[in-house]
Computed example of a mutant assay.
Amino acid sequence: MNIHEYQAKSLLKKYGAAVLGGGVAYTPAEAVDAAKALGGPVWVVKAQIHAGGRGKGGGVKVVKSIQEVEDCARNMLGMQLVTHQTGPEGKEVRRVYIEDGCAIDKELYLSILVDRASGRPAIIASTEGGMDIEEVAAKTPEKIHTITIDPATGLMPHHQRRVAFSLGLSGDALKKTMKVVKALYDAFIDLDASLLEVNPLVVTKDNDVVVLDAKMSFDGNALFRHADVRELRDESEEDEMELRAAKHELNYIRLDGSIGCMVNGAGLAMATMDIIKLKGGEPANFLDVGGGAPKSV
Results as ranks from 00 to 15, higher is better:
272 T>Y: 12
46 K>F: 04
209 V>N: 07
144 I>A: 09
267 G>M: 11
185 Y>G: 00
28 P>G: 05
297 V>N: 07
59 G>S: 12
155 L>R: 00
189 I>S: 04
19 V>K: 04
82 V>K: 10
41 P>K: 10
70 E>I: 04
280 G>Y: 13
289 V>I: 15
125 A>I: 06
86 T>N: 03
15 Y>A: 00
15 Y>D: 01
234 D>C: 01
99 E>L: 01
233 R>D: 07
212 L>M: 14
204 T>L: 13
101 G>W: 13
239 D>E: 14
74 R>F: 04
260 G>N: 11
85 Q>P: 02
244 R>M: 11
285 N>Y: 09
263 V>L: 02
218 F>I: 00
270 M>F: 08
254 R>V: 05
36 K>L: 08
26 Y>W: 02
155 L>D: 00
138 A>H: 11
107 E>F: 05
293 A>P: 01
62 V>S: 07
128 E>Q: 15
185 Y>N: 01
163 V>L: 02
74 R>T: 09
97 Y>H: 02
174 L>F: 05
260 G>V: 13
168 G>Y: 02
79 M>V: 05
53 G>E: 14
63 V>T: 07
48 Q>L: 08
16 G>F: 00
108 L>S: 06
291 G>S: 02
229 V>K: 06
51 A>M: 13
148 T>V: 12
126 S>M: 14
106 K>P: 01
213 D>Y: 09
37 A>M: 11
166 S>W: 08
48 Q>R: 10
36 K>E: 13
248 H>D: 14
24 V>Y: 01
104 I>A: 04
90 G>L: 06
287 L>G: 03
131 M>D: 07
12 L>T: 00
93 V>G: 04
176 K>E: 15
219 D>K: 06
177 T>E: 07
225 R>E: 12
81 L>Q: 09
2 N>W: 03
65 S>D: 07
91 K>Y: 06
128 E>D: 15
31 A>T: 04
161 R>W: 05
18 A>L: 12
184 L>A: 03
176 K>V: 05
195 L>E: 12
280 G>V: 04
64 K>W: 09
240 E>A: 12
297 V>M: 09
290 G>V: 02
187 A>M: 01
175 K>N: 10
118 S>A: 15
134 E>G: 09
80 Q>R: 14
270 M>G: 03
283 P>Q: 06
201 L>C: 14
22 G>C: 02
297 V>Y: 13
82 V>G: 03
255 L>F: 11
173 A>N: 07
62 V>Q: 13
109 Y>V: 03
185 Y>P: 00
292 G>C: 00
10 S>P: 00
83 T>P: 03
14 K>G: 02
32 V>H: 08
34 A>G: 11
87 G>P: 01
21 G>L: 10
77 L>D: 13
60 V>L: 13
76 M>G: 03
86 T>Y: 07
258 S>V: 12
154 G>W: 03
94 R>A: 08
62 V>I: 15
130 G>W: 11
289 V>M: 12
88 P>A: 02
10 S>C: 04
49 I>V: 15
218 F>W: 01
3 I>S: 01
219 D>C: 01
192 D>G: 02
63 V>Q: 08
106 K>I: 06
61 K>R: 15
217 S>F: 02
210 V>N: 13
268 L>I: 07
189 I>W: 04
200 P>E: 15
256 D>A: 11
145 H>N: 12
268 L>W: 09
161 R>E: 09
193 A>T: 04
114 V>H: 11
215 K>N: 14
94 R>W: 11
